[in-house]
Amino acid sequence: MKAAIYRWKVAPGDEEYFARRWHEITDDIMRDHGGGGSRLHRAENGDFVAYARWPSKEARDKAFADYSKDPSRTIPQREGKAELVEEIWLDITDDLLIPEADLPDRFR
Rank of each mutant, 00 (worst) to 15 (best):
K57L: 13
I29F: 00
G34K: 00
R39I: 14
A43I: 04
P76F: 08
F64G: 15
E15A: 06
F48I: 03
D27E: 15
D95C: 05
R106G: 12
A4M: 05
L90M: 10
R31P: 10
Q77Y: 12
K81P: 07
E86N: 15
G13L: 06
W22Y: 09
I25R: 10
E86K: 12
G80R: 00
G35W: 02
R73T: 00
Y17M: 02
L40P: 02
M30Q: 05
A19H: 01
A4K: 13
E44K: 04
T93H: 09
Y17R: 04
A65L: 11
S72D: 12
S72V: 12
G46T: 03
E44D: 14
P71R: 08
Y67D: 04
W22N: 08
I29A: 00
R20T: 03
W89T: 03
L84K: 13
E24M: 02
W8R: 01
D28S: 02
K57C: 09
K69D: 14
L84A: 05
G13N: 08
Y17D: 09
S38H: 01
E83Q: 13
H23D: 14
R53E: 10
A50G: 08
E44V: 06
D66G: 07
W89A: 00
R20M: 08
E58L: 15
M30K: 07
E58Y: 02
D27C: 13
G34W: 02
I75K: 03
D105C: 09
K69A: 14
A82V: 06
E79H: 13
E24T: 05
R42Q: 08
G34I: 04
E100R: 13
A4T: 01
G13M: 07
D47R: 05
D102S: 11
D61F: 14
G36N: 00
K9W: 11
G35D: 01
V10W: 11
W89E: 13
E87S: 13
Y67I: 01
M1K: 01
N45C: 07
K2Q: 06
P99C: 10
N45M: 04
